[in-house]
């Protein structure tokens, strides 16, 4: 089931060189550990570069977006079984 969320969230991430790797995020007052970044892509909204991450916590797939201009993170979508 695909659920649209579109919610600003808090994310813990490692920035190394030009690479960004989210490692956990907080959603619904719960800390979700990221087991795997399954895919990344990027886009622009005006001058802002938006970096997208498809991530897995082992159960669900989440789509996160980092606004590289404002340094804000959003949870966009959740894909879960059922």
């Amino acid at each position: 089931m695909l659920e649209r969320i579109h919610q600003e969230i808090e994310v813990g991430a490692i920035f190394k060189g030009h690479q960004t790797r989210p490692v956990w995020f907080i959603w619904n007052k719960r800390k979700v550990p990221i087991q795997e970044v399954t895919y990344t892509w990027s886009d622009r909204e005006g001058k802002a570069r938006i970096q997208y991450f498809a991530v897995s916590d082992g159960a669900n797939i989440y789509e996160l977006a980092l606004d590289c201009h404002e340094l804000t993170w959003h949870l966009l979508r959740v894909y879960s079984d059922g």
Binding site: T38, Y39, A54, S56, I61, Y79, D81
Partner: peptide
């Protein structure tokens, strides 16, 4: 295929 790569499920 891109969707399947992004989402292993």
């Amino acid at each position: 295929s891109v969707e399947q790569a992004a989402n292993p499920r």
